[in-house]
């Protein structure tokens, strides 16, 4: 089974070495096409004018902040259930990237909202859930940072990620409920049942481009994390070799 073959970090690093250039090339190509389409091919909206072009980065960013959390959830299952050695590496590497994409979704949503709603921030259900998700990402990153031992930090973060994954639908549902109570009239909606193909195609290309961008960044961050752990275990070895005795025996074998 290929999945288990890459449990070995060295083999994983070799895989990254092979895959990364292709993925990066694909990502650059998709962005070239996607940006060209979203600026020059896609028509302006009859209602929103050119501001609809913000959608081509806002929607993919919002999609990615969900996808990134799903990747982290699967990785957390990998940590706790299957005890796959690369799973917590993957979860840790994904968190800052997810936070960055969530930040993008918030910023573009707010910059889109100013011309559309007249304010930078509207307590709109979608934006509010994304804001809560942003806080969860930052909390997870802080949890990773505060714990010294990567194995323990990985398990703690995995528990929190899974609880968050259970909670996210509830949060989404409750924020929707709260939002409809407080502002029944929806100010404007773009996700009608029909999206014109002229808009849909650039959006799909951009979404695909963002997804490959995520995987490029994720693989690179995972490689860094594997190297960081290697450095850590080498330092522990060096310290225990320099100071033999009971202290050396007490070092956790990593």
């Amino acid at each position: 089974m290929a999945f288990w073959d890459y449990a070995n970090p060295t083999r994983f690093l070799r895989l990254v070495q092979v895959v990364l250039p292709w993925l990066a090339g694909l990502c650059v190509g998709l962005f070239a096409v996607g940006l060209y389409m979203s600026f020059f091919v896609a028509p302006e909206d009859y209602q929103q004018g050119d501001t609809v072009r913000i959608m081509y980065i806002h929607v993919p960013a919002a999609w990615l902040c969900m996808m990134c959390y799903s990747v982290m959830t699967i990785s957390s299952l990998g940590t706790l259930v299957w005890k796959h050695p690369l799973a917590d590496v993957s979860a840790k590497a994904a968190a800052p990237i997810g936070a960055a994409f969530t930040f993008m979704a918030l910023v573009t949503g707010s910059l889109w909202g100013k011309p559309m709603w007249g304010t930078y921030w509207e307590w709109d259900a979608r934006l509010t859930s994304v804001l809560v998700l942003f806080i969860m990402y930052l909390g997870l990153m802080t949890l990773w940072r505060t714990m010294d031992d990567p194995i323990k930090a990985g398990k703690a973060a995995a528990v929190l990620t899974l609880v968050g994954a259970l909670n996210l639908p509830i949060i989404k549902f409750s924020v929707d409920w709260w939002n409809t109570l407080h502002q029944p009239a929806s100010v404007f909606r773009f996700d009608g049942p029909t999206i014109h193909p002229d808009i849909l195609w650039p959006l799909l290309v951009m979404a695909f481009a963002f997804t490959t961008l995520f995987f490029v960044l994720h693989l690179m961050a995972m490689r860094n994390e594997v190297l960081r752990r290697r450095v850590r275990s080498l330092r522990l070895r060096a310290a225990s070799a320099a100071q033999p005795g009971p202290a050396a025996a007490a070092q956790p074998a990593e």
């Binding site: 913000i54 960055a100 993008m104 910059l111 960044l217």
Partner: peptide, 29 residues
């Protein structure tokens, strides 16, 4: 159109965020 600054600002900020991510990854490496 009239809202060019908003469009450019959002694209610019996204590019900036991606650049920061890449800088983080490369410096870390």
């Amino acid at each position: 159109g009239p809202h060019a600054s908003f469009i450019l600002a959002s694209y610019g900020l996204c590019v900036l965020t991606v650049l920061v991510l890449f800088a983080w990854v490369f410096l870390d490496k």
